[in-house]
Design a protein around this nucleic acid. Structure first.
Lengths: 235, 235
DNA sequence: CCTACCGATCGGTAGG
DNA sequence: CCTACCGATCGGTAGG
């Protein structure tokens, strides 16, 4: 019986790949073609949706013949899952780094939220960043098993936001329950995928500024709060 | 060029509606089956996406045979467009009514926004309201021609929000540029389609309350502003 | 609205 | 990774 591991690991382990007698030195076809397939799949899944994209489309976009994607991925669904997982892992890595840097710099909760928002916009709207949008808008195309794996990563991602929002709530800058507020805020950001156009008007920084102004209240002296004010006793 | 007959003979002779000789009394199969198809299509398009739903799925859900949908709609795409158009028209009708009622009751801009938000949530999250979610999440499946028709309706829908948001901005309750704020706010609401579960925790009213608290600032005396304060001279 | 059907396309595979 | 191919499915139609 196959397990999820089949989807994550290229089958270089058990059965030896049949057709690779040549080019033991040259590694350019090892991960490169796989990466090219992932990038092509991400772009097309985002533009056309998963079901409307054929494996032939993806193969052609990666410069291959129609059957070749199945040498790298065992199914079209495995390709989708790989795109989504790659998207979530890179987003998580990025936000973890941002949060840690914020901590070392002793930034206010306000400034920390700004970091999270800006990084989120970057991940969604940066050129070539199609992986996370695919995850956001194609999750219903995943079987339940794999959706659960991703839900774990998404939950980890959201957990980066909660303490910051809780601090802002305690400080009076966020006047809404933290749980629902997080859903609404992330929704506002995620929806930007639908309308943002880098060639038009606003930049990612404009978006970040506007989002911060929209969601947070000035709250007295604003960002110059004493550093212990936002901490709850249990922190 | 006209002939004599065209001028002299009443035009009942020219083209008589061809296909309705039977059942002049009984109208039950006129719109009913069409409506059943639309409802089934909306439900399935929402759950599975347009491309992943087959016309056979839809036919079965409406209790028909596989070829029968094409008696009512000339293509699968026409079915999608009809679902979306129906969704937008009903949403527009509903919001127009809400806005007019707000006007007659001389509600504050704050209270007017609440009406808009609540009606928006109802349209998105009410039981059986699959039409608008399909429009929100499947527009890329539409050919450009039809997307333009819908863009017109969407633009009309958004125009109901702008004056209210402008008034709130002028009053200092909304501290963000109106254009971007509207996109972010509608995004926050639209995203609720992805996570809202009527069987869990929050109600639509909870959502509305939270959204209002999140987006608007208390602003001095709050809802008791003089009625001419929010008006710009050009209104 | 049903029956019966077609042409095209698609995910996937065998074998090298 | 390519060539050649298969079985299944799908949107759509003819004719009643």
């Amino acid at each position: 019986m196959n397990t999820d591991a089949d989807l994550l690991v290229p089958d270089t382990t058990a059965k030896r790949p049949r057709g690779r007698p040549r080019k033991t030195v040259d590694e350019r076809d090892d991960g490169n073609r796989r990466v090219a397939l992932l990038a092509a799949a991400a772009l097309l899944f985002r533009r056309q949706g998963f079901a409307a994209t054929t494996t032939r489309d993806i193969a052609a976009a990666a410069g291959m013949q129609s059957g070749s994607p199945f040498y790298h991925f065992k199914s079209k669904g495995a390709l989708l899952f790989a795109v989504m997982e790659e998207g979530m892992r890179s987003a998580l890595t990025r936000q973890h780094a941002a949060v840690q840097a914020s901590g070392h710099a002793s930034l206010s909760a306000h400034a920390q939220l700004r970091q999270l928002v800006q990084a989120h916009f970057d991940v969604l709207l940066g050129t070539g960043n199609d992986f996370v949008p695919v995850m956001l808008y194609e999750s219903r195309s995943l079987p339940a098993r794999q959706r659960k794996v991703l839900a774990q990563l998404i939950s980890e991602y959201e957990s980066l936001w909660t303490p910051v929002l809780t601090a802002l709530h305690a400080a009076g800058e966020l006047r809404a329950p933290v749980g629902l507020a997080r859903l609404l805020i992330l929704g506002a950001l995620n929806w930007s995928v639908q309308w943002f156009d880098p060639k038009k008007g606003a930049s990612v920084k404009d978006l970040t500024d506007t989002a911060m102004a929209l969601f947070l209240k000035p709250c007295g002296t604003d960002q110059e709060l004493p550093s212990n004010f936002a901490r709850s006793p249990t922190d």
